[in-house]
Amino acid sequence: MRIVIGEDSVLLRAGLAKLLADGGFDVVAAVPDAEQLLRAVAEHRPDLALIDVRMPPTHTDEGIRAALVIRHQYPQVAVLVLSQYVEERYATDLLSVQTSGVGYLLKDRVAHVSEFLDALRRVAAGGTALDPEVVAQLLVRRRDDPIDRLTPRETQVLRLMAEGRSNTGIVDALRVSHSAVEKYVSSILAKLDLPHTDTDHRRVLAVLKFLRT
């Protein structure tokens, strides 16, 4: 799998390149700002672009804007955005163009190598990976609505669904049985009045749409 990295910190750029190379990925370019990132994506057409949010010149949301440009111009290139802080507003922006092949994670997550690489593969394969913090931020925004009717366990499952996890992923995370997870999921979808779908991806979309509205 071919990857382009956009990260202004020399230390992290080298670290990420090494991490990905060790994980069996092919890092075709690693650049320090958004402008060079867009050029590298145009040139290499990678499978995935790994992007830092704060990059020169203004150090605000360059990475988000670059990711949106990539989503618009090269829909086949998945984007995984990394940041020291995650913001639901940026997540909403990222998901507004297209909800498949998008990831938005805290930089801390790279320290847990195998989980991070899993998320990266999931995004590259057209899935979604939202940081639990983003999901938590989306949840604090909901008032007086069906979410209040969820049990604590169901809320937990909803969070994992929103992060982009499949049923198997949820089983691993909560250490419960497959059938239990299936039961929770259908109960949640019923309570929130969301459509039942076969694919994990469409289910994530439904949950995110629900959280964002």
């Binding site: 704060r54 150090h59 605000t60 949301d61 020291q84 802080y85 995650v86 913001e87 639901e88 507003r89 940026y90 913090e133 938590a136 931020q137 989306l138 949840l139 604090v140 925004r141």
Partner: peptide
Amino acid sequence: VRGLHPAVLNDRGLDAALSGIAAR
């Protein structure tokens, strides 16, 4: 650091920035 002055506060305003502290 998040309690100091998040970049999103300038960039997207108070409304956007508050999500972060409320969720944390």
